[in-house]
Design a protein around this nucleic acid. Structure first.
Lengths: 197, 197
DNA sequence: ATTTAATTTTACGAAAATAGTATCATAAAA
DNA sequence: TTTTATGATACTATTTTCGTAAAATTAAAT
């Protein structure tokens, strides 16, 4: 039971346009008409798909968060070493959709956007529980020093993912790929020369 | 005859706030109230200084363009070699105020902003006449090959200033300083090994 | 302490932008 | 042909923003 002139295509075009615009200017500054123009779709089609701007913003955010989840799961399910998994996780945030824009966040964490805020917090709870669990397990399996707390690791992960987006680091390394390797290596081995190669 | 609580300070605060906001979001999306909040000044003080948003936008643009002019003059008046001057000119655009933001330009080159557009075009005429003149003189003085047209040089200047803002180039060079040196050297000597060192 | 001037605050009406709806024509799919 | 999604237009309602006026506040000068 599908629509004649592919319904889903317009919906996706609207979502893509909305994300692009929200990305640059946050939610507040972007008008529905603008989203429609960017998506090359009439205003009526918008209202047939979404009740209002908040709803499309919610869907955009939902898509982003879900993609982040899926990416994380896909990485962790692979049959590779823990080290390699972590490298990929750190690399993950390099992807635009895993690093929500400032303006977008600003608008969410202001005014009446309780719904969107709740959505983010739910997601953060979920994902951080999983990550915490994965780390605890890795610690049990001897991949991580026993005398380091999971909380500290969580904090580190956050800072390190920020580092690979830092231009100053990029200037030091040859390219972002090398930056990621450098950071991950530091994450696991510190800066001291390893006794066990 | 000055005002008790320094009048000029508020005006400057408003101009700074406006530039910051116009920079990120263009003119259209920014409200007067927003400018006032950012400048930490009441709406009334805004209207005592400027008639409307267009006027403050015009002043912001005027300041930017004039600063660009002054910078260029200051460079050319120095007692240094032509090569060093050019290096500094290319470096100039690295400064944020000499590289007007996309959103800002977009808003100017749309809709009814004929006044602002005219301002830019006037500036461009002025500056390009000067640059052209400086180059012609340099060519006469033997600093530039005779068989190259000034038009081509003007085109090159434009492209080269863009290059030093390119992240890809930054990844190749160690830092932006080196990028500027590299580009300027290329501008003057090409890539062939020089017969005369 | 009083005066003076700039500023903020508050309130307000006018104007403009945006949101949202109803209707009809069209074009493609069933 | 009938159905269905879409686009275009026109329209109203609502919200936002603009711009002004008047009173209250601040801070320095007299």
């Amino acid at each position: 039971m599908d629509t004649p002139t592919d319904n889903n295509k317009n919906r996706q075009a609207l979502l893509d346009a909305a994300r692009t615009l929200f990305w640059k200017h946050g939610i507040r500054r972007v008008t529905i008409q603008e989203i429609c123009s960017e998506a090359d779709v009439s205003k009526m089609t918008f209202y047939r798909q979404f009740a209002n701007k908040n709803e499309i913003a919610a869907q955009v955010l939902r898509d982003i968060l879900e993609k982040g989840m899926e990416d994380y799961h896909r990485i962790m399910q692979q049959e590779i070493t823990f080290t390699e998994k972590m490298q990929q996780v750190i690399m993950l945030k390099h992807d635009a959709t895993n690093n929500i824009s400032d303006e977008f966040i600003k608008d969410i964490y202001q005014q009446n956007q309780t719904e969107l805020r709740a959505m983010i917090e739910t997601y953060q709870h979920e994902i951080s529980a999983e990550v915490r669990n994965d780390f605890a397990q890795a610690q049990q399996n001897g991949f991580i020093r026993q005398d380091v707390t999971i909380d500290f690791i969580m904090y580190l992960m956050d800072r390190l993912t920020q580092m690979i987006l830092d231009e100053k680091l990029l200037a030091i390394c040859n390219d972002s790929q090398q930056a990621i390797m450098e950071v991950t290596r530091f994450f696991f081995y510190g800066i001291l020369k390893q006794p066990s190669a």
